[in-house]
Amino acid sequence: MAFFDRLKAGLQKTKEALIGQVNTVMSVFRKIDDELFDELEEALILGDVGVTTSTRLVEELRRRARQRGLKNGNELLPLLKELVAERLGDGIAPLNLNEGGLTVILVVGVNGVGKTTTIGKLARHLQEDRGLKVILAAADTFRAAAIDQLKVWGERAGAEVVAGPEGSDPAAVAFDGVKVARERGADVLIVDTAGRLHNKAHLMDELGKIARVLGREVPGAPHETLLVLDATTGQNALQQTKLFRETVPVTGIALTKLDGTAKGGVVVAITDTEQVPVKFIGVGERLDDLQPFDPKQFAEALFAE
C-alpha cells in the first residue's frame, strides 16, 4: 500500500487542518444538538467546502441522523465521512485515452496553479508507469520563460517538447505538436497553455481556438481536457470550473498543492455542483508527486484517525 501511505502522508496536513477541528468537536462526549451541527458546519466552511455545500451537507447529516435515531455526538463523524465521500463520486475516474490513436490532452487553468509542473509529472506517469510515448507542446507562448520551464520538465520526464517562439500563436504550436507527435509515432500529446483568468473573454476565445484546431487535426481531440486547480483557492474555484467549461469541454480536474496547509475542500462543492471528476492530485514538488484521485481513499485519508 505504498501509494496509500504516500497519499496519506501528503494529505496529513489536510487531514490535521480539516479533521483536527472536526475531532475536537467529536472527541468530547456530547449530545446531538443544534450547537454541534453549527460547529460541524463551521469546520466544513473553514475547510473551504463553501457555505452552500456545507449547509447542504449538514442538513443531510441532520436528516440521516434522525432517520437512524442517532443519540451520541461521536456517531456523527462516520456519517459525515460517508456523506463527503458520496459527494466526491465513486471510484477512480480514469484518464480518457484514445485507444489505438493519438491521445490529445489539453491542460488549462488560471495563472499560477501549477499547470506546467503538473504536465511534467503527468508525462512521467504516462511514460514510465504506463509505457506510453509522450510529446509536450509548449502553447504557453505568453508568459516569460514558460517555454523554458516546460523544457526543463520535459527533460526530467524524458519527453520531447515542441515549441515556437515566445509570443507566437499558441494554436499554431498546438498544430505543430500534433504534426510532430504523428511523425514520432507518439501515443499522447500534452498541450500546455498560458494561465488565463476565466473572466477574460479574449483569452478564453484564444483557448477555444486551440481546442478547435486540435479537434480539426485529430478526431475527437482534445480527448482529455484537464483543468488544474490550486488547492489554496477558495470558492472562486467553482467559478473557474464553470467558466472554463463554457469554453472547453473540461473532462477532469487536477488538484495541486495539497501538501500545504490548504484544505482543498472546494472540490467537494465542485464535484457536487459541476459534476466534473477530480482525476489527479498534486502532493509535492517531486516528479512522482502526482497521484490518481480516489474519492474513497481521499475521504478516508481525510477523515482517518
Binding site: G47, D48, V110, G112, D230, T232, G234, N236, A237, A262
Partner: peptide, 15 residues
C-alpha cells in the same frame, strides 16, 4: 498573496 485564496489565507499570512 493570490486574491483567489480561500480560508487558507489566514493560515498562510499568519505563518
Amino acid at each position: 498573496l493570490d486574491a483567489m485564496i480561500g480560508q487558507d489565507a489566514v493560515t498562510t499570512a499568519e505563518h
